[in-house]
Simulated assay, not measured.
Amino acid sequence: MTSTNGTGTHGAVIADTAADQADGAIVELRNAGKSYGNIRALHGVDLAVYPGKVTCVLGDNGAGKSTLIKIVSGLHQHTEGEFLVDGQPVRFSTPREALDKGIATVYQDLATVPLMPVWRNFFLGSEMTRGSGPLRRLDIEKMKKTADEELRNMGIVLDDLEQPIGTLSGGQRQCVAIARAVYFGARVLILDEPTAALGVKQSGVVLKYIAAARDRGLGVIFITHNPHHAYMVGDHFSVLRLGTLELSADRSEVSLEELTNHMAGGAELAALKHELSQVRGVDVEELPEEADLTAPVAGGGEGKS
């Protein structure tokens, strides 16, 4: 059963039923916020990430998604509220500390070297070696074999691991980055707009591997501005608007239409229609009262329906 309250400044927050299961959360933010001097970028945000669940964080530009990523990934420290990992309060100083706790982030630029082979990028910064002292050298064959096995475990089959990773499609590079994070022990995987620059088919490929990561028991934070992509694989949805939490709801509590309406800012569009009605020569009769919930968003793919 859902309930509403006035927590958000731009809309109702549906009660987070997952809050009742807080003991099982890998990562949890409680009333968290971040200020940069007099600028309050994030305020009063609650978020819980569970193993085997995809938590989707949606919001327009400037909503606070990037700030939230930086707090969880260890780039910035929160200035309000609590940040807990496995139920224990933490305050990361570096992304390495977050990684040591099993929190891995895949950014849009993927942190890959385009001209290096796929297997080399898979182990970039964490290369396998053999021998010792002056005879120590890269264990190339073992890295190639391991990279191939791990990619296949995620359902990713590449004909040639020697090909430069820059020759792969955007979707394939995203999938390699996901498999890499899983191999190096990620328990929580943060994906920063992984489908933003992809077409329909490649978006589908990425969504399929997000679902695969979830099915392997990882907790996934899927950052996106596309409610259709989020709804395909998401188990819980958090919508940010101007740094505050506007919506927090499990999949069973919200429909795609409602999610799209919150994401698009239905109240703001209704107010805009009223303002446009005062402008001479503008016909607003055909405009919807709220967000156009039936208009398709570019993108699609496979995942949990």
Rank of each mutant, 00 (worst) to 15 (best):
S252L: 10
D159W: 02
R280V: 10
A267W: 07
M263Q: 09
P95D: 05
D148E: 13
V54Y: 10
P194K: 09
V297A: 15
Q202R: 14
S3K: 13
P51V: 08
T146F: 00
I14L: 10
M143T: 01
V106T: 00
V297Q: 13
D60F: 08
H78I: 14
Q172V: 04
N61H: 09
H76N: 10
P194E: 03
D86I: 03
E285V: 08
P164R: 08
T2P: 02
N121V: 03
F92R: 10
V188N: 10
H236S: 09
G64K: 02
A25I: 08
L245G: 00
M154I: 02
F237G: 13
V157D: 06
E149M: 08
M232C: 12
E162R: 06
A18G: 10
H236Q: 14
T167V: 10
T55F: 07
K34F: 04
T94C: 06
Y183L: 11
R152W: 03
Q163W: 05
V176Y: 07
V282D: 01
A230D: 03
D292V: 12
R241C: 08
Y183Q: 06
I103N: 00
E290I: 10
L161G: 00
R241V: 11
A271L: 12
L58T: 05
E149S: 15
S238V: 13
G303R: 08
G155C: 11
D109H: 07
E28N: 08
A147N: 03
V205A: 12
L276G: 01
I103C: 13
S93M: 13
G59I: 08
Q77N: 14
S238G: 06
A196S: 11
V182D: 11
Q88M: 09
A147D: 00
A197F: 02
H236T: 05
K70Q: 02
C56L: 04
S255L: 09
A267I: 15
K201Y: 06
I190K: 01
R216K: 09
Q202S: 13
R241Y: 15
K34I: 06
G265D: 07
T2S: 14
D100R: 15
G303I: 06
A179D: 01
L293T: 09
A32P: 06
Q163I: 08
H78L: 07
G185M: 06
